[in-house]
Amino acid sequence: MTSNNEETFLERAREALEAERLDDEIVERLAAARRSALDGLEPGQPLTPQHPLWSFWAPVGAFAVVVIAVALTLSSPDIPEFPYYESELQAAAADELELLEDLEFVAWMLVEEPDAG
């Protein structure tokens, strides 16, 4: 089986396959299928894939949020500690204590500066 014979055989096979004429109806259906496929492209529409704007900005935005969160965490000044009370009773007692301290302060002011009142 020489390559020359094989080439002859293949050439004849190609001719035989090409010689077959499809039915007109089949040809028309194929053309319609092609038109239908191409209709998926709007006239003038570029063939490069178009992505919605958010598909670009969404990851950028997410990354920015993460960067800002990390930056705030690392660079934030010491947050002043606020008094923390486990119960309303403790909170009320603290308020009372502050009030008493204020009263003491007012009394001290009155003693030290009688004319101020």
């Binding site: 194929l30 191409l38 492209l41 006239p43 063939l47």
Partner: peptide, 18 residues
Amino acid sequence: ERVALNQFLAGVEKRAYK
């Protein structure tokens, strides 16, 4: 590119069908 695509499909459709 649209024309090129049409020509490509027209060129292969018969063989593809077979």
